[in-house]
Write a protein that binds this DNA or RNA. Sequence first.
DNA 1: CGTAAATATTGATCGATATCGATGTCAGCC
DNA 2: GGCTGACATCGATATCGATCAATATTTACG
Lengths: 108, 108
Amino acid sequence: MGEPAEVAARSLTPGTSLTRDDAERLAGLLRVVSDPTRLQLLSMLLAAPDAEANVTDLTEPLDLTQPTVSHHLRLMVEAGVLRRERRGKQVWFSIVPERLAAIADILR
Amino acid sequence: MGEPAEVAARSLTPGTSLTRDDAERLAGLLRVVSDPTRLQLLSMLLAAPDAEANVTDLTEPLDLTQPTVSHHLRLMVEAGVLRRERRGKQVWFSIVPERLAAIADILR
DNA sequence: CGTAAATATTGATCGATATCGATGTCAGCC
DNA sequence: GGCTGACATCGATATCGATCAATATTTACG
């Protein structure tokens, strides 16, 4: 599968203007956290005991189906924002704070 | 029209989970800076002399039409990320750094 | 006041993606 | 080894937004 792409190559601040390619990569990362459902998921994970939760628990408060929630979780895992760990029948998700911070830092 | 909406009401960190409404508002703000073209525009503005530029100058390096660039600039102005100032026939745009920082802070 | 330059608006198109229902897969248990 | 529970994948749909061409608006200038 490959590591979640080092980090953002080039942010906004460097004196030189952004390449289209760099801009698309950075926009792609930002888009991962620019969805209301994904923000709610992140928020729930932050508030959860031990800062982790499984798909069922994450689905319940949302007015969405389980496949939809799994889809959002997948996108965030692929972006390196979430960590995924299978324990028995359940799969637990937790935030990777450095990655979230790295995305925020794109705008500095 | 109205002011650019105080700032983000509620960020990610508060112990309580995000409301749908709050999540949508925050996601809306993040989406404004989650587009490659808009990131390029922000980057060009940061690199520009006096940190400002007009529509023609901003359009030229991009492989896009002027209406498209105007559209992106409009979205960012409406979100409070850009300031707009007409000077003669031209309209000059510059970044509102606090607003950009406020958006970045959503993820903390 | 008519013309040209700079920017805005409008209407249409097209691709991306959030969502769902249906189904597949995987892990524990009787 | 079949059942059930937890999660993933698939295919279809529908909405949203980036983009364009065409046109309107605004401003200076002669």
